[in-house]
Design a protein around this nucleic acid. Sequence first.
DNA 1: GTCGATTGCGCAAGTCATTTGCGCAACTGC
DNA 2: GCAGTTGCGCAAATGACTTGCGCAATCGAC
Lengths: 130, 130
Amino acid sequence: MPRPSPVSDAVRGVIDAGQRHAWALDELLDSVRTQVPSADYSTVFRAVTMLERSGEVNRVEVGDGKTRYEPNQEHHEHIRCRDCGQVAQVPGCVLLAAESEIAGATGFRVDGHSLLFSGVCPICQRKNDG
Amino acid sequence: MPRPSPVSDAVRGVIDAGQRHAWALDELLDSVRTQVPSADYSTVFRAVTMLERSGEVNRVEVGDGKTRYEPNQEHHEHIRCRDCGQVAQVPGCVLLAAESEIAGATGFRVDGHSLLFSGVCPICQRKNDG
DNA sequence: GTCGATTGCGCAAGTCATTTGCGCAACTGC
DNA sequence: GCAGTTGCGCAAATGACTTGCGCAATCGAC
């Protein structure tokens, strides 16, 4: 019987709840603190690091200078709002076939890709109009 | 007649020479120092920032924790070596058509994307085999 | 129950990659 | 040759992690 770990459990819970798609550490911390007010940044960091190592979550880089984490699901792409930074999920993948073609063109052995669309999310569109 | 600016000129020269595709600041500094040994990190930083503002270079994020810069050319994708971090260029774009579809699926107003393939470059493939 | 070992986690310091402030000194135009 | 501008080196500040340290809560054994 392992010791209870409220902070780590809260981190896992927050990510799995899926209220947001790709969580940055500070966002995770804010959310975790609604359940465990004393939670610390480093603890959240260690928790997601463990979850990543165990394969429960994936690290994603969306080019905003922050490391983000999402639940480990089937492959998909991302779309980020240029204004608020919110990251949403774009289901499906149209690129697998392209990889072998890229391999031929560049000489690289291609084993993955990450595709990020950018634009303005519905909420920010409304804000901008108003 | 503006003052000469050897460091800034060297930065522009290095990027335009195209010996590498996407330059990180420390790589730029190393290269610039072969021409101007006293060159400083902050000066290189300010130079690329200017070049970016003037539209001569583009900032690219390739998910390795460093900001990279490339000459402002027509749209293309990138491929990065998982081992050595080298970034090469993948010409062409197969995704423009997809953007409107994504817009419909997510509600975002889509105005761009960035696609990064990852894999192992020819040099590292040879290193790994040997 | 209580004692020793384990381990979650808060605190604070360290690291890495920028980013900014400061001020000297070279250069330009007058 | 002089005043004003400005490129740039130096060093400190910032932001986002990352790591070390050690307390204290909890577990299992007796």
